[in-house]
Nucleic acid binder design. Sequence first.
DNA 1: TTGTAGGCGTTATCAT
DNA 2: ATGATAACGCCTACAA
Lengths: 343, 343
Amino acid sequence: MANHMDNPATIKDIAKRLNISLSTVSRALRNAPDVSEETRQAVMSLSQELNYQPNRLALSLRQNQTHTIGVIIPNLDYVLSQMVRGIDEVALEAGYTVMVCQSNESFGREILNTQRLLESLADGFIISVSSETKSFEHFKKIQDRNLPVVVFDRITPHLSAPSVRLDNQAGGFMATEHLIEQGYKKIAVLAGPENLGISNSRLEGYKQALKKHKIKLDQDLILHCDFNQDYAYYATLELLSMKKKPDAIFTISDRMAIGAMLAIKKKGLQMPTDIGLVGFNNEPVTGLVTPAISSVEMPCFEIGKAAAKLFIETMHNKESATTIEKILHPKLIVRESSLKFSA
Amino acid sequence: MANHMDNPATIKDIAKRLNISLSTVSRALRNAPDVSEETRQAVMSLSQELNYQPNRLALSLRQNQTHTIGVIIPNLDYVLSQMVRGIDEVALEAGYTVMVCQSNESFGREILNTQRLLESLADGFIISVSSETKSFEHFKKIQDRNLPVVVFDRITPHLSAPSVRLDNQAGGFMATEHLIEQGYKKIAVLAGPENLGISNSRLEGYKQALKKHKIKLDQDLILHCDFNQDYAYYATLELLSMKKKPDAIFTISDRMAIGAMLAIKKKGLQMPTDIGLVGFNNEPVTGLVTPAISSVEMPCFEIGKAAAKLFIETMHNKESATTIEKILHPKLIVRESSLKFSA
DNA sequence: TTGTAGGCGTTATCAT
DNA sequence: ATGATAACGCCTACAA
């Protein structure tokens, strides 16, 4: 049995015990061709006995790579958890370890995370940008070091890197068109922070749908508010107090949809009769509340997997174009909250 | 400006440019006392100019520590996300980087994660055990290397390590007693997997409450099922088909509570009149469904923070007793689903 | 087929 | 106050 040593066995230990040189051991261990069967056997069996594990630190130092991917994300909510699972899945299989850092939607924290991960010598980065972030110097530093970066979900034009994302505009479009087809006339939209790409794309889809159906765009029906439930609640109360009150609301996240729902109930209005509601993300909760909320489904797990795959590819082929843009497609899940013409 | 070098500057570079020795640079950088003010200034300013960052790999190799904590958790659901946030918070502040690995409740995956993290030379581990895990050899390997381990949330007697957890029994007790006080007579419990500690503790609390109130324990009212919504749904259907049907259900997780709720609705029963329901975790969803579900609140973020703090302490004081057990307290959040005597 | 030596970036010990 | 050297664990020319 392995004697109770604190310190893991090293190549040196094996070499000493076998009275051969370090290099021979190293070769035997890595199945190099030029080592006698006899020595190899001896090395192998002893290394098993000593429970030898190569020291990744030494390896990394030598080869100048850590087989670690730095993942920076704004939070660990439902959507991103799923995506991280996808990343994890692929990365693990490819022999990479993942370091996940949450920025908590904080710009400063994002910089700190980048810094730390850079210090830890991650081989590259998979990033979803915080909503607070408007400057991208910290990410540029990564690229200055010539490390591969993949951005996903919340991408940004300010960072030129291969990317994976949802077709957010299509999502916004299908949500809005669905409401139009259900006979809603005055459709408001709760958009997210103005500087956020996904927010604007979904909003763009909304506008596109109105245009297609020849509905005049009313700026008063577009509200930008923070990505969370409370803001959405108050924004909705505001909307519902307008003279020319909307008869439907599209929110660009489910958190916001929940906030809107609570406000609608507070006002004593009924969904889907008085007012229609469609959210975004298709979080499980949308199917559980009453009425169940229609939502745009996003293939989170797949997006995560795609991001990791793209990363690995970029890694193995450093010259690859930074213009690769992988776009996955949303799907509308219709539930009660928007089903005016129910079956 | 920093010339566009791919390779980060090293001590060597600085030494060369300044025509002094490596050791002097090293000393100057680390503010050693025995270096002339002049040299120090020169080194400092050049290192800034070159944007010098010490190479953590080399440092780690030298000092035999990575300042990295391996975190192994079964999944990234609401509860654990919060806890991870807590861990992150404290670890970051203490200068540690966190590597989070999900086992996906899989025993094999947990072993793999441990292995990987061990190879990556984490300085220690913070672990919440997968529900599938019945053997603990892989964790013993960590301790064999004399690395500190802290277990949290899902702890196990098979692993002797400092731990942080909720007083699960108290949680089970307060949920059950609340139901009793609300006048429910036949209270069933949906417990989790049998080998899981938290499951059994909560169940124990249930039993304790019955005992206190002199209610006879009925084994038929205790169902073990997997930790998820679907199982809970079917288990509840089963419960509700019994002749001596229960008039209240305590589920040891909110996921299960949701499953139970759906089954109750399916059967056309009303909460809280026909049947009472209390869940566990106080996930946001419990407040959003109709009727809102009472639930036992657990201070997730705090538990995470406590785990990380305990880890840091253990780290700095290796001889510390492995018997430290930090226990945080739950709080019952009463909502409609169990409020028979409503105000 | 095997061994020797140098290097990855850093720090620590010992001289000078 | 400064420098040379060995060491952390590993790999890889190059030499034998």
